[in-house]
Design a protein around this nucleic acid. Structure first.
Lengths: 339, 339
DNA sequence: CTGAAAGCGCTTACAG
DNA sequence: CTGAAAGCGCTTACAG
């Protein structure tokens, strides 16, 4: 037997309990001026009997906000993003918020579509893991809407809270790994430079290398998308030139790029790290199982959640609109066999 | 300069255009009785000027439904689930729906929390990829709420649309791979049997094997969670017994279990497939890059999206409540080196 | 072709 | 301690 399709509303509860909807509402929300124990009992009973669940939509419309937080990520297939999202989700849930995930696919229009959608749903905030510059995004942060940027800072010109590692320092760190091993034929396959994270990683790498007198040949610098496929083809074009002189150490803008590069090397019969060394970024949680050879910068994804929650709380507590607030999390170096 | 924090509402548009809100609403929604071209022009201009975006909440409350679809998945870190979600998302978006993702974490309470949340948000439907039996789920499908099950059929007793492969046949197929190679020392590490998918895969495997006179020793059957870690420890307990007699061919309930088993074999110095053969399920899109050795059943995740959309459309078009409707997608065998 | 009005399910001053 | 009433932003018969 199917239940009635319509679910109970607050008036049903009020009728059944023999009180007004105002009273029911107050009891549900635990409002200060306490109701009489007897009333409370009746109302709770009615709620239980009807299996009443307040309408999020009615509530949101009235309160002008929901307890939803939207998280937009560029690529659900990247396990690092998934891991960060998981961390944020559980931190949020502990505070009574629910997280809903949207996929921007690294595309400005898609991101805007979801941003508009989420705002119209009255979410209490949006977290962007890997934001891409877009008109709606700009509008949101300028209007003081609570948005926090994760991993990738806000596009230039926008000022908003950020949670992530010091990407520049991490880039420096990769350079030092190569320097310590005596590599001088260094290369880089970075991600899109509209990403401040990619920008900073790459810059740190270049700067530190040049302190050592090492200049990157232009043919040894490639931009790729942040995917395995793209890493593969970028590596191809770099390793496959006519001459036999190829780079011996490659900075990869993230782990998937490193996976692709690795495969390309294998396909070319190049050995890692004997012929070429590879260094990744983020330390995708899959690495320990499926890429136990990859040396990479480890970002502490388990601790992103708490940091994001505090960032939101600061924003909510602060009516003064735009504000900058950076939470820089420590990274570490995961040394495996690819260097 | 920050924009005004408050966004425009339909009354603002109506005032600016000098018409009633009813007219604005009709124009936005393209209602039949067409407005005069002049009115339309004025309204569109006002909308553009104010950058008006209808409130999803106001609209949902009034219409008693939104254009949101919720998708719940058990584990965002499983790339197969992510790939299916991506496919569903883009199919949905083409129909004008937005998908929001929730993570049940393979846990009934968490699933219920999100289910209730989503229903209270007035989503137009919920798709569950890997549903776990739970009270709220039961309530939803019994009340005729549009839910479609992906990959894992509805828990027993519930009747609802399903999109996925024929898991039993796939299990049979794995058995045949082993049989053809002459394996007789066969084992299985399946996932939780509350999952009809795991149940069917395992059953197909067992049945086909026993047709061949091959019985699975009880010690060679293990239940694991659908994760790499769990696969690793299940394999441990199976391969690590005192005697030297271990299985030569292991059915793994999904790819992550196979990854874990593979690693365990490596750690034990066992060669794949010389010492033990492994067969996975789903064909995680990462396989070709990071596990190019894994033979597995390929589920056509790219085509799940369209099938899910039609399943919803059938449900919406049909007021008669509960209905069963299966869309069985073809699977194939991906032969790599682990068998 | 267009507007006034009711109502979707809630919350919250305001009275009492 | 509790209720009547207004209103959140929309849509949709109902009149005209």
């Amino acid at each position: 037997m199917a239940d009635k399709a319509k679910s109970a509303k607050i008036t049903d509860v009020a009728n059944l309990a023999g009180v007004s909807v105002a009273t029911v509402s107050r009891i549900i929300n635990g409002v200060a001026k306490k109701a009489s124990p007897d009333t409370v009992r009746k109302v709770k009973a009615a709620i239980a009997e009807l299996n009443y669940q307040p309408s999020g939509v009615g509530r949101a419309l009235r309160r002008n906000k929901s307890h939803l937080i939207a998280m937009v990520i560029p690529d659900a297939n990247n396990a690092f993003y998934a891991a960060v999202a998981t961390s944020v989700e559980s931190a949020l849930r502990q505070k009574g918020y629910s997280m809903i995930l949207c996929n921007s696919d690294e595309d400005a229009d898609t991101q805007d579509l979801y941003l508009a959608e989420m705002r119209s749903l009255l979410v209490s905030g949006v977290a962007l893991l890997g934001a891409v510059p877009s008109p709606e995004l700009e509008k949101m942060v300028n209007s003081g809407f609570p948005v926090v940027f994760i991993n990738r800072k806000a596009p230039k010109g926008l000022t908003a809270p950020f949670v992530g590692i010091d990407n520049y320092a991490a880039g420096v760190c990769v350079a030092e790994q190569f320097i310590n091993q005596g590599y001088t034929d260094c290369a880089a396959i970075h991600g899109p430079l509209h990403s401040p994270a990619q920008q900073a990683r790459f810059q740190g790498y270049v700067d530190r290398l040049s302190e050592e007198g090492i200049q990157l040949k232009p043919e040894w610098v490639r931009e790729a998308k942040l995917t395995i496929e793209s890493g593969y083809s970028a590596a191809s074009s770099m390793l496959t030139g006519g001459d036999k002189h190829f780079p011996r150490a490659i900075f990869c803008g993230n782990d998937p790029i490193a996976y692709g590069s690795y495969r390309r090397c294998q396909d070319l019969g190049l050995q890692i790290p004997k012929d070429v060394a590879l260094f990744g970024f983020d330390d995708n949680p899959l690495n320990q199982w499926l890429a136990p050879w990859l040396s990479t910068i480890h970002a502490p994804y388990e601790s992103f959640g708490a940091a994001v929650v505090s960032a939101f709380e600061r924003t909510w507590g602060n009516e003064s609109g735009a504000q900058e607030m950076e939470t820089i999390l420590p990274f570490s170096v995961t040394q495996r066999s690819s260097v």
